[in-house]
Design a protein around this nucleic acid. Structure first.
Length: 280
DNA sequence: ATTGCCTGCGTGG
DNA sequence: CCACGCAGGCAAT
């Protein structure tokens, strides 16, 4: 459970990326993160759910391109949304945007509970209100107090209190590996019209699938806006549940991520592994 | 797979 | 308004 384990995994993924040409062996990778091969495999499996080798298979350009080839992700997602039986490890995520009035009163008469919990991708900072989850950020290094500050900044007049056990329960549900968990989440976000439109679009991408920034731009009828889309995605306040990790470059390169490119890769491979498990 | 030049767009002044 | 910068795209290699 210590967060250092995720750090090891992140380091391992980075090492693999830097040495892709030589196809590093398990032994090499484990040496790079200062663990014995045996123990490394154990730790890795414990966190990610699959072995490092299998994990790597999902990180190839080929796999990413394969994901992109399901080009009609958005049509597919509509069908899946209608016949909810066929979802694979996904949640019903609904999204509500803050109204101008609510924005103006800066969170008055609003209670926000927050906490830091564990996830397969390291520690997460979660904040939740009566209206829904309003923030989910992964913790990179030092930032846990910064995150609280940004929460206060977004809702200056809200009543903000710590409730770690609540976010523990939430985190377990969010990162549940059970297929078709039937869990429902309501999100409560603030952002520009454009940003909200982009985020709503992301929620429709099913788990285990991916699309390019270009495809997202198409889906909101702004075919030439891929760069603007990328900017909007980069401001996503609710990681994972607004699945910005499922948007990758046209070329198959995973691309950047607000909480580290390695973490994005880990999520993509993790979801791919779950999808494969539940279909076999 | 890697480089370098290009785009158009929302955002912030 | 205008200038800026971008988690991108594309073509050439």
């Amino acid at each position: 459970m210590p967060n250092t384990h995720y750090d090891k995994i992140e380091k391992a993924i980075r090492y693999i990326n830097e040495n892709l040409k030589t196809q590093p062996s398990l032994e090499e990778i484990s040496r790079a993160v200062n663990l014995s091969p045996f123990h490394f495999q154990r730790v890795f499996r414990q966190w990610v759910g699959i072995t490092p080798k299998r994990f790597l298979q999902f990180l190839t350009i080929n796999h990413a391109k394969q994901l992109l080839k399901d080009s009609s992700v958005f049509d597919v997602s509509l069908e899946i949304g209608l016949s909810s039986q066929s979802r694979l490890h996904d949640h019903f995520v609904t999204l509500e945007a803050v109204t101008p009035g609510q924005f103006k009163n800066e969170g008055q008469d609003m209670t926000i509970e927050y906490g830091i919990s564990q996830s397969p991708f390291g520690s997460v900072f979660i904040a939740v209100t009566e209206r829904g989850i309003c923030q989910l950020s992964f913790i990179n290094q030092q930032t846990s107090s910064d995150l609280l500050a940004s929460l206060r900044d977004a809702w200056p007049k809200a009543d903000i209190l710590e409730n770690g056990s609540r976010t523990d329960v939430l985190s377990k549900k969010i990162f549940n590996t059970q297929a078709a968990s039937n869990e429902k989440f309501h999100l409560f976000v603030q952002g520009s019209n454009f940003q909200v439109k982009v985020w709503e679009s992301l929620v429709r991408i099913p788990a285990g699938m991916a699309c390019s920034y270009q495809q997202v731009a198409n889906s909101i009828a702004l075919p030439s806006g891929s760069r603007a889309v990328a900017n909007a995605i980069a401001k996503n306040p609710i990681g994972f549940l607004i699945p910005c990790h499922r948007v990758i470059r046209n070329t198959g390169v995973i691309g950047g991520y607000r909480w580290g490119s390695e973490r994005k890769q880990a999520m993509i491979a993790w979801e791919a592994a779950i999808a494969q498990n539940s279909s076999s």
